[in-house]
């Protein structure tokens, strides 16, 4: 019989919250580890959620990361409350960054975030509306 169980968790991420940066991703990783997920897949989810979490903290007005764990795939929904991305193609370009210097001093803002998220996912979908939101729909297959 097909396993139809689904686990859903949601983490709110605050703008500029560098103190707690990484906590959501860390919790997500711990949950998936407990569920016995393959370590390679675990790493891909961890990298994608961590980059997304940093993006919300650095670039947005705050948002959330939502994780849906299906038997055969992990769905990650990320959404923030703006300001939106003007040129998505440019934002997807490795090395392009709008991060200020204080972010670079923390070791981020190299313009690798979105390309790195995409690299970790089997399906990657980005939508953005200026002044409203940026939304990521990510899928990582479990095997």
């Amino acid at each position: 019989m097909e396993d139809v169980r689904k686990i859903k968790v949601k983490y709110m991420v605050e703008k500029d919250d560098f103190m707690r940066a990484g906590q959501a991703s860390s919790n997500i990783k711990k949950i998936l580890k407990k569920l016995g997920l393959d370590s390679q897949i675990l790493r891909r989810v961890a990298i994608a959620t961590y980059e997304a979490e940093m993006n919300i903290i650095i670039h947005s007005e705050g948002g959330f990361i939502e994780l849906e764990i299906h038997p055969d795939k992990i769905r990650i929904n990320v959404e923030d409350n703006g300001p939106g991305i003007k040129d998505i193609d440019l934002a997807m370009k490795a090395g392009y960054s709008t991060a200020p210097n204080k972010i670079r001093e923390l070791g981020f803002g190299a313009g690798m975030g979105l390309p790195n998220i995409k690299r970790c996912c089997d399906e990657f979908n980005i939508k953005s509306s200026l002044g409203e939101y940026t939304r990521l729909e990510l899928l990582i297959y479990n095997k």
Partner: peptide, 15 residues
């Protein structure tokens, strides 16, 4: 040479 919590978090994500 980067000593802050983000270094540890990054390492954690990558095992």
């Amino acid at each position: 040479g980067l000593v802050n919590a983000h270094t540890i978090r990054t390492a954690e994500m990558l095992d």
